[in-house]
């Protein structure tokens, strides 16, 4: 049950490059990453692709398959027809190192800019008491495998490179929401979410949610609730008036 599949793969270093055509064996039950590996082993030994667990748990093999951000290991060949040409390109939002491998350091920089979990000083390890219902919201966001496809697909930076300096991307805005909803976090994150990390750039068009391989409801459960929390702080005239009068 194997056939010759038509692949068109981006080859090149540092952004310069072209789409190269390959005809390669495809067997029943395979995923796109398997075929890329077959290309490596048979036709293009130096074809660069990043991968790890091959089970959709590590988020390494993010790429764009027929223009859509996907994990190579979770895209079954059976979702395509046999005569279809499958185009595989690197994530568009990040600079290319080589072939399908991109430089995702933007994401690690942004991770660093977000103040870490800040528990109260007087709680010692082992003394934490939290109810399941209080941790569930943040637990959903912690399912994130950091494939960075949400940041890749987000048009705020995908189409506007200049926004990278002041926009943390859905992944890290969600991280802010995760911490802000943590029952023991005492840091104030609302102002900085808007001012420093660019929550206002999000126009909730939900592409992050659409591409999330973990099916996290990024927009509905993290970004919008965080926007509402910012409204509490910054755009609620009653709160604003109260602050003016009582000076906090």
């Amino acid at each position: 049950m194997s056939y010759k599949g038509k692949f068109r793969v981006w080859r090149g270093e540092g952004g310069e490059g072209r789409l190269e055509d390959f005809t390669v064996e495809v067997n029943e039950g395979e995923v796109v990453l398997d075929v890329i590996h077959r290309l490596q082993a048979t036709q293009a030994p130096d074809l660069a692709v990043r991968w790890n667990c091959k089970a959709g748990k590590c988020g390494s093999c993010s790429m764009e398959i027929n223009g859509k951000p996907r994990l190579g290991c979770m895209t079954r060949m059976s979702t395509f027809t046999e005569d279809e040409t499958i185009t595989v390109t690197p994530m568009r939002t990040f600079p290319v190192i080589k072939d399908l491998v991109t430089d995702v350091s933007y994401n690690y920089q942004k991770a660093r800019e977000i103040p870490s979990f800040t528990p109260p000083k007087d709680v010692k390890p082992g003394e934490y008491r939290m109810q399941q219902i209080d941790v569930e919201r943040s637990q959903e966001f912690r399912k994130c495998i950091e494939c960075f496809m949400c940041n890749n697909v987000c048009h705020v930076i995908r189409d506007h490179e200049e926004n990278k300096t002041h926009f943390a991307g859905p992944r890290f805005l969600m991280r802010i929401a995760e911490l802000d909803m943590h029952p023991y976090d005492v840091a104030d994150r609302k102002d900085s979410a808007q001012e420093d990390h660019g929550l206002g750039y999000c126009n909730i068009t939900k592409c992050c949610t659409e591409v999330c391989p973990e099916h996290i409801k990024i927009t509905d459960n993290a970004l919008i609730p965080m926007k509402e929390r910012v409204v509490d702080r910054k755009y609620d005239p009653l709160v604003w008036l109260g602050n003016k009068i009582f000076r906090r």
Binding site: W10, G12, E13, G14, G15, E16, G17, E64, N66, G67, T87, T89, P90, R92, T93, F94, P95, V96, I97, K98, D103
Partner: peptide
């Protein structure tokens, strides 16, 4: 970086 680092120079709006 090995070469000038930039995004993949794909000229089309979407694939």
């Amino acid at each position: 970086s090995p070469a000038r680092k930039q995004r993949a120079q794909l000229k089309v709006r979407t694939l």
